[in-house]
Nucleic acid binder design. Structure first.
Length: 263
DNA sequence: AGGTCATCCTGGAAGC
DNA sequence: TGCTTCCAGGATGACC
């Protein structure tokens, strides 16, 4: 669930509640959340340092620390951030206590999320081969075109590939394909320029609209597929029944009436 | 290279 | 009511 807009909401939350605060204690009730580091090293870096800034790239959240490295968090499917003072929330994997008495918890019931340290954000992303974040300055239609160029798979698969573009997940891939009127299995190669433009605009609109309501989907206009993703749902455009297609274990919702296969 | 499938994990929904 | 089964879904890796 946490895709680009959801992670951006979490970043803003962290910006609001963590930046400028000193970390006085680090709780690691489930150290398996750590990737590429061990609890001792992790605590050494975090304890006593101050959070100076936040950053997000695709579905990755970063916090810059006074001590040189960055803290990174990936939320997996069910990861979230919770601020608490008294009773702790459930499913805490990592919790930072701040000098102001607040605790910022990384909760993750299904444990697909992870956290770790990075010396440099760009190097971290480059090492993993992640594509550009479509909401960052400089990403435009030409950049979108360039990223799709040479891809031969189907659109749903290409959009989900974080190495092509970082931040699109299952729900937003469906949303942009729906708004652009493209069947999920449309081949990426050979798309007309006007079609690529439509897809790009659908992506940007979906991200902007979702962020405007801080990802509360029920507050989106009715025309968004995000409001209609369940088994009995109807297409908000033609009121036909949406189809559910399983692709590589991922449920894909689309309207067969106006998302036709094409070149 | 691209597509498919299994894997990780567990709460919550659905089914019986 | 209570137990069992299924589903969700990001990323990775094996396999065809």
């Amino acid at each position: 669930m946490p895709e680009l807009p959801e992670v951006e909401v979490r970043r803003r939350f962290m910006e609001r509640h963590a930046v400028g605060r000193r970390i006085t204690d680090v709780a690691l009730p489930d150290a398996t959340v750590l990737a590429d580091t061990v609890p001792e090293a992790f605590r050494d870096v975090l304890a006593g340092t101050t959070v100076r800034a936040t950053h997000r790239h695709g579905k990755w959240l970063f916090a810059r620390l006074d001590s040189a490295p960055w803290l990174w968090i990936h939320f997996g499917m069910t990861g979230s951030l919770r601020l608490y003072q008294g009773e702790a929330p459930r499913f805490i994997r990592l919790s930072l206590r701040f000098s102001d008495g607040n605790n910022l918890a990384f909760t993750d019931p299904r444990k697909f999320g992870a956290a770790g340290l990075a010396d440099d954000v760009d190097a971290f992303l480059a090492a993993r081969g992640w594509g550009p974040d479509p909401t960052h300055p400089g990403f435009d239609l030409a950049a979108f075109r360039a990223r799709l160029k040479g891809r031969t798979g189907n659109l749903k698969g290409v959009l989900l590939n974080q190495k092509v573009i970082a931040g699109i997940g299952n729900l937003y891939a469906d949303e942009m394909l729906f708004q652009a009127g493209l069947h999920p299995e449309t081949r990426c190669a050979g798309l007309k320029p006007v079609t690529v433009r439509r897809l790009y605009e659908a992506m940007m609109t979906a991200f902007e609209a979702s962020l405007a309501v801080e990802t509360r989907y029920h507050e989106l206009p009715d025309s968004f597929l995000l409001r209609h993703r369940n088994h009995t749902s109807q297409c908000p455009k033609c009121r036909g029944t949406l189809k559910i297609h399983k692709a590589a274990g991922r449920s894909t919702y689309y309207c067969p009436r106006h998302q036709r296969r094409r070149g």
